[in-house]
Simulated assay, not measured.
Amino acid sequence: MSKPNDSGRVAETQARDHLLRHGLRLLAQNWRCRGGELDLVMLDGDTVVFVEVRYRRHAAWGGALESVDSRKQQRLIHAAQHFLQQESRWARQPCRFDVIALAPTQLDWLKNAFEA
Rank of each mutant, 00 (worst) to 15 (best):
S67G: 07
V49K: 06
D98P: 12
D69H: 12
Q73I: 01
N5R: 03
F114H: 10
V48M: 09
L27E: 09
R89K: 14
P4N: 03
V99P: 12
A101W: 12
A80H: 04
V49R: 13
S70R: 07
H22G: 02
E115W: 11
L102M: 13
A113H: 14
F97V: 13
L107H: 08
C33L: 04
T105M: 15
P4T: 00
I100D: 12
E87V: 10
G8S: 01
S2G: 02
L107I: 15
C33K: 02
C33I: 07
A28L: 06
L27G: 06
D98Y: 07
D69V: 04
N5G: 00
S7H: 00
V10Q: 03
Q73K: 08
R71N: 05
E37V: 00
R32A: 05
A80G: 13
G35L: 04
E87R: 12
G8Y: 00
D98C: 09
E37I: 02
A59C: 01
A60P: 05
A101K: 10
R75H: 05
D17M: 06
N112C: 14
E87P: 03
G35D: 04
P94N: 08
D39A: 01
A59L: 09
S70V: 05
C95F: 07
F83N: 03
F97S: 10
R54M: 09
G36T: 01
V48Q: 07
W109Q: 12
F83P: 02
E115F: 09
K3F: 01
P94D: 08
H58Q: 13
W109Y: 14
L24E: 14
L38I: 02
S70H: 04
H22S: 04
F114M: 08
R25D: 09
K3M: 01
Q73D: 03
G8W: 00
G62E: 09
S88W: 05
R32Y: 05
N30L: 02
N112K: 15
D39V: 03
A113G: 10
Q106R: 14
R75G: 04
H58V: 09
I100Q: 13
A15C: 08
W61M: 08
A80F: 04
L76G: 07
E115A: 15
G36W: 01
D108Y: 15
H18A: 09
Q106K: 10
R57I: 04
V51E: 09
G45N: 11
Y55L: 11
N5V: 02
A79L: 02
L27I: 14
L102D: 10
W31R: 00
E66Y: 05
W109F: 14
A59E: 11
L65F: 10
H82Q: 10
H78A: 06
V10A: 03
Q85F: 10
C33H: 10
K72T: 06
A11F: 00
R16L: 15
K111T: 15
H22Y: 03
L26N: 08
D44V: 11
D39S: 03
D44K: 14
L38C: 02
P4Q: 03
Q81R: 13
V10K: 03
A28Q: 06
W90D: 06
V10E: 06
Q14I: 11
V51P: 12
